[in-house]
């Protein structure tokens, strides 16, 4: 359980960042294009899905989460689950007849 007191820095090359950046721009392009098409209720789902994918890349590469210890990953899952619970449980109220 206990984390080691280690300090190894992981150097990520410039090229990788540019690669991720291009990907993010591409996803931005897709989300703008897709928003013009009417999918009904699915529009927001698609938009949020793409936003989640983009965040995943930012988190893992720009924010180095991929190279961090397990504890950090556990932390971030805790935080996200908490937020999803806050959001989801509120909808126990709103998505049913009041």
């Amino acid at each position: 359980m206990s984390e080691h007191r280690h300090e190894e820095s992981h150097v990520i090359e410039y090229g990788n960042y540019i690669f991720i950046w291009l990907g993010l721009l591409a996803f931005t392009g897709i989300t703008v294009t897709v928003s013009g098409i009417d999918f009904g209720n699915w529009t927001i789902v698609i938009a949020l899905f793409i936003a989640c994918v983009k965040s995943w890349y930012v988190l893992n590469y720009f924010m180095h989460m991929k190279y961090e210890d397990k504890v950090f990953k556990l932390f971030i899952v805790t935080a996200l689950v908490t937020f999803i619970i806050f959001l989801g449980f509120t909808f126990w109220d709103y998505s049913f007849v009041r």
Partner: peptide
């Protein structure tokens, strides 16, 4: 990343 589609892209 989330604000952009939620405010600008509701078409």
């Amino acid at each position: 990343i989330f604000l952009f589609p939620l405010f600008y892209l509701i078409h």
